[in-house]
Amino acid sequence: MDELPVGKLTARVAASVTEWATTYPYLQSARIPPLAGLFAAAAPSAAPDALATLARVSLWVFAVDDLFDSQTLQVPQLERFTAACTAMLADRHKYPLRASSPTDPSTVPVLTPPAHALLDLQVNVRADTAQYPLFTPLADLWNDGIATMLNSMLDEARWARAYQLGGPAALPGLPQYLRSGCLSIGSRPHLRTVLVTLGDASALHHLSFLFRLEKEVSLVCRLANDLRSQAREAGEGTVNAVLILEQQALARGLPPPAALEAAQQAVQRRLDRHLARCAQMSRHPVTTTGQPEAVFARTAVLAAALYRKTDFLRPPTECQPARGWRCAAEP
Rank of each mutant, 00 (worst) to 15 (best):
P133C: 08
L119Q: 05
A147L: 05
T22V: 07
V6C: 12
A170S: 13
A329S: 14
L254S: 03
V110E: 13
E318D: 12
T86G: 02
Y163P: 03
P96T: 07
L223R: 09
L165G: 02
P175Q: 01
D66N: 13
L245E: 12
R298D: 09
V17A: 07
A259R: 05
D140I: 01
G290T: 10
A297I: 09
L78C: 11
K309E: 13
V110W: 03
H284F: 13
V239A: 02
F68Y: 15
Q122I: 05
L121G: 02
P114V: 03
P33C: 07
Q320N: 10
E293C: 11
G173N: 02
R92P: 00
R323N: 08
S70Q: 11
T288E: 15
A258M: 03
G199S: 07
H93S: 08
W142I: 00
L138R: 10
P34S: 12
L89M: 05
P316N: 11
G237I: 07
A99H: 03
H205A: 14
S282C: 14
D311K: 06
C85W: 06
L134F: 09
P96S: 10
S229E: 12
V217C: 12
L254H: 04
P25Y: 04
L119M: 04
S100F: 01
S187D: 01
S58W: 08
T136L: 14
D128I: 15
Q264H: 01
L204H: 06
E214V: 05
L4C: 12
L118Q: 03
V125R: 08
L223C: 11
R277C: 09
A294W: 04
A169Y: 00
A303K: 00
A258T: 02
G7W: 06
G7F: 04
R222A: 11
L275G: 02
S45T: 15
V75L: 13
M153F: 01
Q265D: 05
G186E: 02
H205L: 07
S58C: 03
A249H: 09
S29I: 11
T129C: 11
P113W: 04
L195R: 05
L260F: 00
A328M: 10
L38Q: 15
L154A: 06
S282L: 08
Q71N: 13
G145W: 08
A83L: 09
T82V: 04
P172N: 05
N124G: 00
I32E: 07
A139Q: 15
L78S: 06
L204K: 05
A162S: 12
R98M: 00
T287C: 10
L302C: 06
W159G: 02
N240L: 06
W20I: 11
G324N: 10
Q268L: 10
A55G: 07
L35S: 13
T288K: 12
A40K: 11
Q248V: 06
A258Q: 08
A249D: 03
F68H: 07
N124V: 12
P316Y: 15
L275T: 02
V242G: 02
D65L: 01
R192P: 01
V242D: 01
L111N: 02
L51K: 09
R308M: 06
Y177R: 01
E214L: 15
P189Q: 05
R80V: 01
V194N: 01
F135A: 13
N225Q: 08
A43E: 11
A329E: 10
